[in-house]
Amino acid sequence: MTMAVPKRRWPSSTVWIVAAVAVVVHVLAWQATEFSPAALIAGWEGMADFLAESLPPDLSVLGKSLEAAVTTLYIGLLGTTFSIPFALLLALLASRATTSAAWAQQAARAVLSFLRSVPDVVFALIFVTAVGLGPFAGVLALVFHNTGVMGKLWAEAMDESDRGPRDALRVTGASGPQIALHAVLPTVMPSLAGLLLYRLDVNVRSSLVLGLVGAGGIGFLINQSIKLFRFDEMVTHILVVLLLVVVVDQASGFVRKRLGA
């Protein structure tokens, strides 16, 4: 007896169409970005000049640089910390583990996705107009953007939490907020803490870019050095940035490992 063999389905016409569209989009992108390896090879002398001017680094600005790096770290720290209450509230509203009303979930998700889709640099430019150039505008920008990102990550962590303890408390007659407090949050706390540290790490790096648009810290110094063509100072600042990023990344990684998250 012959068995009916299912028809081979792959590659299907859908696969071919998707592949063709992907190729066309990449060709368009290649043209629009003026992608040109030849230009890179032809222009290598420019880079060489730039490097020659920037070496050796001017270490006389090291003190100023370290001070500004600490400011950058503080911008990232406050931006992360002050976003905790907003992110927590919105995450609790957005997660299906803690909120049953569909309209509330949708509203919280809409707010989170708005905050997430406006880049922190844009928030910084807006706040600079309100509070002037300086680190405070950077902190405000991070609070807004990080609320969106961290709120979403936290809501997802809550969504994935085990349903069992929630059901068990519902049977005891516990209300939604009580279940969030005694089943969901205790279960997901290590994940929330891990995500918080990950965001701290990212925000310290973001606050660097915020400095470039005038929000203080070491990014601001880098911007100044470039404008004054003091590339040797800039290299010092960049080395300090590397140090800062590595230290924060290692510290956050170490704590996250200990949390098992």
Binding site: G164, A168, T172, G173, P190
Partner: peptide
């Protein structure tokens, strides 16, 4: 008042026995 006990137990493993038992009182 009816309570339920599950095959998979459904306690919050990170909390103490005391906290888990206290949560039975949440309804009141």
């Amino acid at each position: 008042n009816a309570a339920m006990v599950f095959q998979k137990i459904h306690l919050v493993g990170r909390r103490t026995a005391l906290d888990n038992v206290c949560s039975g009182a949440l309804g009141r």
